[in-house]
């Protein structure tokens, strides 16, 4: 029992992301309203972004902006600077997420204009008819 608690405390960050991801996943597959599905997708995306950023953390590390002169002299210890690579990847992922949300909202508006509703089952009924 104590071992399990220790395991959880040492890796509590993954628990946060998994729970956030579960909230988003449930909203994506369990809700009928399309806007709620979109919100679920955004929550899912936030969980993944947090996960990636947390892989770059080093205990006691500083932000990845270094002193120029010590950088030119080559005296930087990589263990004291956070990993810049996940930050870069997530920077692009955030902007892509914004554009995905924009396109999704546009498509939802178009669906509302065509069918007059955003509930999934009502739309499916109108499509089948």
């Amino acid at each position: 029992m104590e071992q399990i608690v220790q395991e959880i405390v040492a890796k509590y960050n993954y628990w946060v992301y998994v729970i956030l991801m579960m909230i988003g996943f449930y909203a994506m597959i369990g809700k009928r309203n399309l806007v709620k599905k979109l919100l679920g997708m955004n929550i899912f995306q936030t969980a993944i972004i947090l996960f990636f950023v947390s892989t770059g953390v080093k205990k006691g590390g500083r932000i990845p902006i270094v002193d120029k002169y010590s950088g030119l002299a080559g005296t930087i210890d990589p263990n004291t600077i956070d990993n810049p690579l996940p930050h870069v990847l997530m920077l692009t992922a955030i902007v892509v997420g914004v554009s995905v949300t924009g396109v999704a909202l546009a498509v939802l508006q178009r669906i509302y204009r065509e069918y007059g509703t955003l509930e999934e089952n009502e739309i499916l009924e109108k499509v089948r008819r």
Partner: peptide, 12 residues
Amino acid sequence: FPAWGDPQSPAN
């Protein structure tokens, strides 16, 4: 997975 803030983790 590696523990949080591990400087020797594979990603780092």
